[in-house]
């Protein structure tokens, strides 16, 4: 089932009096449950593309249809609601709220959804902590966790509301290879277990190796779009 459709998407930024193109006519279709990576060097448009899909930005031209909704037609309030209900974000620098504990960081999206009782929230958060291997660390603040642990909290925060998409911008860039692999394993497991569509960006070949679909970007255009047979690769 198609959950995301980008048609001829262009994004330009204004720098002084210059219009700088970041994306030039991108066309992309994503099915539910994909584990897709945008790959490419810095400045190729990966983050811009993630921002547009994540309803954080609007394209200069073209259309983005996300879960059946044309994003250009949504008001800022509606875009915020889409982000709150359907999209989970994982950031390169984890972006946890430093004054909140791991538990409180993870519960935030559920509180914002305003659908669950405190008991239900507690149950879900504890299960999520267990799932990401952080059981017993719920009272720690981000500064008391390692980088890998912080990113696990961020993954739990992104997944706790059972979103349609998880968007991850260079999720392992600030982690050592061991922690990076652990985080990618976790993301892959969550993708398979929950069927959540994962779209992430990277320029790290190791991370690309985890993707089941690899979309390479160059100068704001899709240079290649290929399915990856991980089993074949592993063999």
């Amino acid at each position: 089932m198609k959950v995301l459709e980008l048609t001829n998407v262009t994004k330009e930024y204004t720098q002084g009096k210059m219009q700088v193109p970041a994306l030039r006519g991108v066309n992309l279709s994503v099915e539910a449950g994909e584990f897709l990576s945008f790959a490419g060097p810095s400045g190729s448009g990966k983050t811009t593309l993630l921002n547009l899909i994540g309803c954080l930005d609007r394209p200069t031209a073209g259309s983005i249809e996300l879960a059946g909704r044309e994003l250009a037609k949504l008001t800022p309030l509606e875009l915020a609601r889409v982000r709150r209900q359907e999209i989970g974000f994982i950031f390169q620098s984890f972006n946890l709220i430093p004054v909140l504990t791991a538990f409180e960081n993870i519960e935030m999206p559920l509180v914002m959804l305003n659908r669950f009782t405190p008991a239900e929230i507690r149950e879900k958060v504890m299960a999520a902590l267990e799932e990401v291997g952080l059981a017993g660390l719920e009272s720690r603040r981000p500064a008391e966790l390692s980088g890998g642990q912080q990113q696990r909290v961020a993954i739990a925060r992104a997944l706790i509301k059972n979103p349609k998409f998880v968007l991850a911008d260079e999720p392992t860039a600030n982690l050592d290879s061991e922690n990076g692999q652990a985080v990618l394993d976790l993301m892959a497991r969550m993708n398979q277990k929950n069927g959540v569509t994962f779209i992430f960006s990277t320029h790290d070949p190791m991370v690309m190796g985890y993707a089941r679909r690899l979309v390479r970007l160059k100068d704001g255009r899709i240079a290649s779009d290929e399915e990856v047979d991980r089993h074949a690769k592993a063999n």
């Binding site: 994540g54 954080l56 309030l77 915020a80 609601r81 982000r83 709150r84 950031f91």
Partner: peptide, 8 residues
């Protein structure tokens, strides 16, 4: 981050 998570 708060906006990304869905705060308006």
């Amino acid at each position: 981050t708060l906006k990304a998570i869905g705060m308006n």
